[in-house]
């Protein structure tokens, strides 16, 4: 970065350039799609083998425990568990394509039906948290990079300490203080008993927002660290570059240089953070959902393990991984679209 002294052109390139650069984008899109397929080609057999590695009778993972032997045999046949492994894998893939993830042992309904609800519940917590964290992180990082040394040092030290604090510790203590001791926020679930309902409007109720406040705050705090630090470093680098000096020489107001010219360019690396933060984001979600009894996918997978509900475990695992893979691909493509240097590299 430091050796890159060519001034960046912020103006739109002429149309002829544009047409030429759309082909690398198409190629990038294709190669990214291919990479996605490779990842899926690793993930799906891995999951298949994993769930056939259950100790004891491998059929137990699909058919369920404590079942009448006659019924178990029948189900085993129905699921093709008496067939050789390659054939099983084939029918496994076919079932996946049809969205058939088996029946949950705990709930006695198709896993897919439970998953849809869980996915929505996780999304209403995690998506706002990520968006808020990125927006706040970009602002805070840009501000820290350009403000007084003391403020900058303060931001860095806080980020350092927050990063070192395990999220289950922070959320447990926050729940104890604000939920149990002070009683400012409800301590479990998404809704008070009797509240809620079916439509998406339930996520606009005050009762929901009241339940959301604390878990959301903790997730934002936890997700905030990396975008802030990245933005701060990136901003310092950008402000050293020639086009900023040019702006200064032209006599543009400082605020305009920093935010219009500097921050816009510095924010790009924050977008590429996403794939590196998968563990952070999903890990934080699993922990916070568990601490606050939030009925999402993270809490779901822990419950599934405690109840030996193998189809549910598999469903949540696959859905989480596929979501991550798809979101990462979309972000990469969006980044390549925003920054032509990526696709030309």
């Amino acid at each position: 970065m430091a050796t890159d002294t060519t001034p960046r052109v912020t103006a739109e390139p002429p149309p002829s350039n544009r047409r030429r650069s759309s082909r690398p984008l198409a190629r990038f899109l294709l190669s990214r799609l291919l990479q996605m397929l490779v990842t899926l080609a690793v993930l799906i057999p891995l999951t298949f083998l994993l769930f056939r590695a259950v100790p004891g009778d491998p059929a137990a993972a699909v058919v369920g425990p404590d079942m009448d032997p006659a019924v178990a045999d029948q189900l085993r046949e129905q699921y093709g568990l008496d067939q050789p492994l390659p054939q099983q894998f084939l029918s496994y893939c076919l079932a996946l394509l049809q969205g058939d993830l088996g029946t949950s042992f705990q709930y006695k309904v198709p896993v897919v039906d439970v998953l849809a609800d869980r996915l929505v519940n996780s999304a209403v917590l995690v998506v706002p948290a990520v968006l808020l964290a990125v927006a706040l992180g970009v602002a805070l990082g840009a501000f820290a990079a350009t403000s007084s040394r003391r403020f900058d040092e303060g931001v860095r030290t806080s980020a350092f300490v927050i990063k070192a604090s395990p999220i289950f510790w922070v959320s447990t203590l926050a729940l104890t203080l604000f939920g149990l001791t002070l009683g400012w926020v409800p301590s479990l679930g998404m809704f008070s008993p009797g509240e809620g309902g079916d439509g998406l409007t339930r996520f606009l109720s005050l009762d929901f927002l009241h339940h959301l406040a604390l878990p959301l705050t903790i997730l934002v705090l936890y997700y905030l660290v990396e975008p802030t630090l990245t933005m701060r470093t990136s901003m310092k680098e950008v402000l050293d570059q020639e086009f900023i000096e040019l702006g200064r020489a032209q006599g543009l107001p400082r605020r305009r240089i920093v935010y219009r010219h500097g921050a816009r360019n510095a924010a790009l690396p924050v977008v590429t953070l996403a794939p590196a933060l998968v563990d952070n984001i999903i890990g934080g979600q699993v922990i916070v959902e568990t601490v606050f009894s939030w009925p999402g996918m993270g809490r779901g997978v822990v419950e599934a393990v405690n109840n030996y509900d193998y189809p549910m475990m598999q469903g949540i695992f696959l859905l989480t991984a596929v979501t991550v893979i798809v979101v990462n691909a979309v972000i990469d493509v969006a980044y390549a679209y925003l920054d032509p240097r990526v696709r030309l590299a």
């Binding site: 490779v38 993930l43 999903i282 393990v305 475990m313 695992f317 991550v324 893979i325």
Partner: peptide, 22 residues
């Protein structure tokens, strides 16, 4: 490519499921 795939798997759900199975 295998390394890329390892990046795509979120650690905590993976570890939870592994413990759940093994």
């Amino acid at each position: 490519r295998i390394t890329d795939s390892a990046y795509a798997l979120p650690f905590l759900p993976f570890a939870i499921v592994l413990v759940g199975i093994l």
